[in-house]
Every structure is written in structure tokens, then in C-alpha cells.
Amino acid sequence: MSEIALTVQSLQKSFKDQQVLHDVSFNVRKGEITALLGPNGAGKSTTIRSIMGILYPDHGTIKFHGEKEGQIPKHKIGYLPEERGLYKNVKIMDILLYFAELKDYPQKKAKERALSYLKKFGLEGKDKVSIEELSKGMGQKVQFIASIIHEPELLILDEPFSGLDPVSQEVFKEEIRELARNGTAILLSAHQMNLVEEMADRLIMIHKGREVISGTMDEVKREYASFKCTIHGLNDENKLKTIPYVTRVEQQDNVSVLFLDQNLKAAEWIRKLPSDIQIEEFRLDRISLHEIFIDVASDRTLAAEEEEKYA
């Protein structure tokens, strides 16, 4: 298992009387991409801002391995915040060199890296133009370069894909992977589940400030990624609930979605379906990370768990 770069332990934070983080804990490892997921307002940015020392947690510890307790090695961290921008009327190269200087990175090396990344992201020859002359997508690429110009050991990306077109998303995805392959520890928050599913090695999902799912991508998939069955036809919801392995039923008009237990053997289950069910259309799919996310975001899983607990 890879070496741990960052440990977040029992993080708690309140704004006014509202607690926005409840005991959030996770590790970020070198050479791995850890995804921090959750709906809007879940506490992702608060967690990230606490790691960066921009906010102070009320309780809990943030430990950068290889550093003294409570010390944030800012020059070893790359950070792309969710709310981001750049100085408008300054040349791109000047901005990139300034950010490198703030991180104590040698200027000559920074210039070489800046030129090479600009070329890589299709911005060759744009080093002397100002941000206001670039499109929004191009600006985001420059922001991304600014966050990695100093070869950070830990890279924290808050919603790096927001506002990007699919082509740029691919470019970013490939670059983030490349950085991880080279040993950078990466923590990213995102909404695009398909991208996270493709990239992340580990994930932690928080909802209303609480950790709801965590583990490696394989563990999470094994634990949560079961099947769902969509049936078009007029059927009684209560009757569908009595079918073996069905954990939950959602029905709208004549479309019923049956959520199935993860121990299900699909072929056998299909064979044993009651013969009096009306089936005009039938589909069996894997539940994706996206649906797990929607489930969590809309409190359905939590509600189902609560129901089970008090049943």
C-alpha cells in the first residue's frame, strides 16, 4: 500500500450554530487519487479549506506526514480552489512565475515548466498575453498550471472539472493521472461521477458533513454497486416488494425500479421472477457511482437504513 501523505482525523467545524463537519476522517496517499465526493453544501470545500489552513477546524487533526504537528508545508502543496480566478491585466508568464516564487520554486525551472505545460495544454505562445484575452476554458488551464508549477507533493483540486468542455476534461484527467503516476498525492472533489469512477483510487463521500461512504474504488463498488431492475408495466408496488432480493421499489406511473441486494445472482433471479408480473420492457443494470451519489444526496439510502433500523 502506498505511503500516506495526509491524514485528516475527526474533523469538526461549525458556522454559527450549524455544525457543517462531523468527525470526517480520511487519508490521502502518495501516487493515488483520492476523491472527496458529496452534494452541494456537504462540507467538501470546508474540509479542503481546513486542510489548507484557510479555515480553522473546531476539533480534529490534520497531519502532513514528514512535517511537524500542526505545520502546513504550503510550498509542497498545490491548490486549485473552487472559487478561482487570476489577475486580469497581467501577463500569464508573470502570474505563473509569481505563484512559483510564492512557493519558493526556482524561477528558471518554473519558466521552463510553464512553457512546457502551456504547450501541452494547447496554449503555446500565449505566455505574454493577459488572462482577459483568453477564453474561460483557457483561463482554467492556466489556473491548473499555476497549481502544479512547483511540482507539489500533495495536490488538492476543488472541483477541477467544473466549467470545462469534454475535451478539456480529458486533458485534465490525463494530466492528473500522470501526476499520480509520478508519485503526487492527489485529493480532488468533483461532481462528475463518471470521471471520478474512471480516475479515483479511493473515495470518501460526505453528506451533511458526515462521512457516508469511504474506501478504495473496488471496495465501494463491491459494497454498493449492486443491480437495479427497471420494469415497464402495470404492477402493484407491494407485490414487487415481496420478490426475493428486492430491497427497495420506486414506482412512477407504470415504470417500477427495483433495487436489488448485492448478493444477487442475476440469471437465477430472473428465472425465478413471478409469472404474473406484467412486463412490457425489462432492463437490468449495475448501480453506478452516479446513482449512489444521487441516492446519498437525496437521503434515500439513509432513509432506507433508518427504516430498517426501526423496522
Binding site: M52, I54, K74, H75, I77, Y79, L80, P81, E83, R84, G85, L86, Y87, K88, F99, L102, K103, Q143, A146, S147
Partner: peptide
């Protein structure tokens, strides 16, 4: 005020 408007302060504050 401009640093706020251009949303650049959080990036800068990640270094100092």
C-alpha cells in the same frame, strides 16, 4: 478589492 473580485486571493493564501 480587485483581488477579491478576480477570486485570486484563495490561491495566494494557499502559499502565505
Amino acid at each position: 478589492s480587485q483581488e477579491k473580485k478576480e477570486k485570486v486571493s484563495e490561491i495566494v493564501l494557499s502559499s502565505l
